[in-house]
């Protein structure tokens, strides 16, 4: 289009259009828009937060994972080290180690599993309420570790219970365990409750 020649609109046309819009809006806006939350009582108003169901559930699940007591061998001491004052596992809401599996969400398998012990561990796992997770701590928990090949040792907890996170080391340092716990939290965060996950 050549500059200065022939406008699409006459000079006044746009202004008239704008004026109409303003008039219309002015007409529509005579009444006050009510507060959408006005139906909420005062008490409720300060306590509501909107989010998705998954995010809310996963947040609740991952910020207070209570482990169950299942500490057969040496790795248990590194778990206790992680739980004690220096590494302080309570930063993650995990300091409550439950003796009853029904109150626990997480099994940290800190130690060698023997065949004699295996039925107890299985039973413990079965008694835990869903959702539940397992961290295999230490080489023994992963594969039997140094004791692999012994006549009485189970070569890894995953023969008995499904394992979510593996933490290698013999024993893993408390820092490694804490990292494993972070990975588990990440895993829980991505969990979908109502959608069938793609295989």
């Amino acid at each position: 289009m050549e500059v200065g020649k022939g406008h699409v609109y006459s000079g006044a046309e746009l202004d008239i259009h704008e004026g109409k819009m303003i008039e219309e809006l002015k007409e529509r806006s005579r009444d006050i828009i009510p507060d959408p939350d006005s139906w909420l009582t005062d008490e409720l108003r300060q306590n509501i937060l909107l989010t998705t169901v998954d995010a809310a559930l996963n947040w609740a699940r991952r910020t207070a994972i209570w482990p169950v007591i299942s500490f057969p061998a040496c790795c248990a001491f590194e778990f206790m080290g992680a739980a004690a004052s220096r590494f302080d596992i309570s930063r993650f809401g995990m300091e409550i180690v439950r003796a009853s599996p029904r109150q626990a969400d997480l099994m940290i398998t800190a130690g060698t599993l023997t065949w004699k012990m295996a039925p107890q561990i299985k039973r413990l796992y079965d008694q835990m309420a869903e959702p539940k997770w397992v961290i295999a701590m230490g080489a023994c928990g992963i594969s039997g570790g140094v004791f692999k090949g012994s006549y009485s040792v189970v070569p890894g907890y995953n023969h008995i219970v499904p394992v979510d996170v593996y933490v290698p080391g013999c024993p893993p340092r408390p820092e490694a365990l804490l990292y494993g716990i972070q990975m588990l939290r990440e895993k829980i965060k991505r969990r979908k409750s109502f959608v069938e996950e793609k295989k």
């Binding site: 057969p72 061998a73 130690g111 060698t112 023997t114 004699k116 012990m117 107890q120 004791f147 090949g149 012994s150 006549y151 009485s152 040792v153």
Partner: peptide
């Protein structure tokens, strides 16, 4: 006893 018998003497 024996819930932690790992067979160290044999290994």
């Amino acid at each position: 006893f024996g819930y932690l018998h790992r067979g160290i003497e044999k290994l």
